[in-house]
Amino acid sequence: MTKYAFYPGCSLESGGIEYGMSSQAVAEALGIDFLEVPDWNCCGASSAHMTDHLLSLALPARIMALAETLPVTEIIAPCAACHARFAAVEYELGRDEELKQKVNSLLERPYTGKVKLRYFIDVFSNPETLKEIENKVKKSLKGLKVACYYGCLFVKPPKIMKYIDDPENPQSMDNIIRALGAEPVPWPYKTECCGASLGVTSEDQCTKLCNDILRIARDSGADCIAAACPLCQANLDMRQVTVEKKYGISYRMPIPFFTQLIGLALGLNPVSLGFKKLFVDPAGMLKKVGVA
């Protein structure tokens, strides 16, 4: 059985609860074991790295050190923002021994780097698992047009993320969507920023970026936008109300997580996948693929 250290992060227990529900359900259906990091803390997110460099490394390093107590070789973080903080730890502490010691002097359990960060989408898009998903599809999502939205933090910048996906035109989620029988639409905003980090402090800027993404997805013929980051998802889902007020356009574009779509195709119950937690009603989209 494939095992990973699983870091839910604060979002998967609150605003992105359906990402956590669907990730766990899909992993179980595919025989993948997610072991939650014991006593995990918040990664500090952008608030920490806007405030203090050392703080922004020590918080995620504590989590990665705790993951080393588990019988795993890799850690995953479904939240792209948490993932980016772990990637920063690997990159910066990996090339600077002095900095690593400085960070470790703040931790009760030192970070050694033996548990490596794995790109969460790749947990499902690697060739073996993708084949497994294809074999286990019970309810093909044929006819559904999906705009795959990776957001910025999973793929940028590539020298720190050093993974398989292209930072401007990534493909891993597109491959998953294709394996489910659905159609990933070509569109240019796959990795454009949605502005979530300024959602509270600079709403105007954020609303404009959301409108751009929603408009281009709609014009590309998408029935929904599949998200891979709980901050992007919450932003694009909840802010459609604000976008409507400011721009007078009502998109009603459902923003499911890509893991919820995998779950649908595997024949799992939409309620257990958290479809009721979405703000924009996904009923039309579910009807299109024959799940009522």
Partner: peptide, 22 residues
């Protein structure tokens, strides 16, 4: 001012509870 106050509020909850408390 608004970004700094947001960051301070965010980090205050992390410092006291360990996780974000929205």
């Amino acid at each position: 001012a608004s970004v700094i106050s947001f960051n301070e509020s965010f980090l205050w909850t992390v410092r006291n509870f360990g996780r974000l408390f929205e």
